[in-house]
Design a protein around this nucleic acid. Sequence first.
DNA 1: CGACGGGACGC
DNA 2: CGACGGGACGC
Length: 396
Amino acid sequence: MMTNGMDTLPQQNGSIHTNSTSSSSNSHNSSSQAGGNQEESKTNLIVNYLPQTMTQEEIRSLFSSIGDVESCKLIRDKVTEVLFVGQSLGYGFVNYHRPEDAEKAINTLNGLRLQNKTIKVSFARPSSEAIKGANLYVSGLPKNMAQQDLENLFSPYGRIITSRILCDNITVLFSVRQFVGGAGDNIPCLSKGVGFIRFDQRIEAERAIQELNGTIPKGSTEPITVKFANNPSNNNKAIPPLAAYLAPQAARRFGGPIHHPTGRFRYIPLSPLSSTGKTMLAINKGLQRYSPLAGDILANSMMPGNAMNGSGWCIFVYNLAPETEENVLWQLFGPFGAVQSVKVIRDLQTNKCKGFGFVTMTNYDEAVVAIQSLNGYTLGNRVLQVSFKTNKSKAS
DNA sequence: CGACGGGACGC
DNA sequence: CGACGGGACGC
């Protein structure tokens, strides 16, 4: 199932198609590939649409749940790096030791929802000048043109990496709700008549401009405009307020003036699992940081082994099935905020889950909402129990 | 009914 | 007219 706004993964290796039995054999003929393609790595992934707050270590943690990671790099803005740690550019690279792990990561992590994002995981192309600046901005599209129609129009000119048709704001909000709700595939969307097409190669994009700019699509009356998209690095985006760099979480926690760093609408973490009303209640509770309840939790949590664990809040998840894997915990908790790490506790002999696990989240408020929302949630045929970690143990 | 890890700063 | 949810190749 493809999620709203996510493109089907184009086959990364143009000549290979889906029903090739997943190749665990190492005998791929990379050197004899025709077409002058650079050899594509079978272990190196590009990860796009990462949540703004996700750190390189959190990314490594997430991808290590699949297999041994050789290297991991989050791309950050070099300009802001002068003052602080550079702002995340929302994408990064993960290189595995083993090709089969890379493939598994694509299968299990592509489309994973984390906070307000749906990450995309695909093979990285070999870096080269030829693939840069291949993003096109298209306007004047007929309102009834769908993403697939757009791709059909442009596909004769090259390999499409991504495509997108912009929607009316109202429907965007709507689709985000559905999207977080997990039932959001194929949301009808009022097209704004503009979109983006990213080609693999810049030459392909240039040719599409030459061939399609000013032409009238079949069934339309208006010519379309096709040009290179603005480069995000030299656009005139408003400079985020300094406070966003200094204390991005404080602004949210205290409910002050909302300034999304990128100046768009504010994302409210709607629970995938409960009604909006219940979630808002949970958010409000979470905001009362100095209530007696919160005070107890805070004090109690400072004890060794308890919920407050260095830079994050450790959450105990009970009643997991024996086959549970880490990605389940990422999927459950990711939508509620910054998740630093997850751990499924397994029996050393059988390697089956012992029925519980831990999730560490960065922000108290988000942890509270996650607990409120997920405690009592039925996963499969099991009712989960979710709470802050205590210091219970066999030894004590 | 069942129920809170593990690796480890490092002097 | 229009610029995304989301700065796609190592910032």
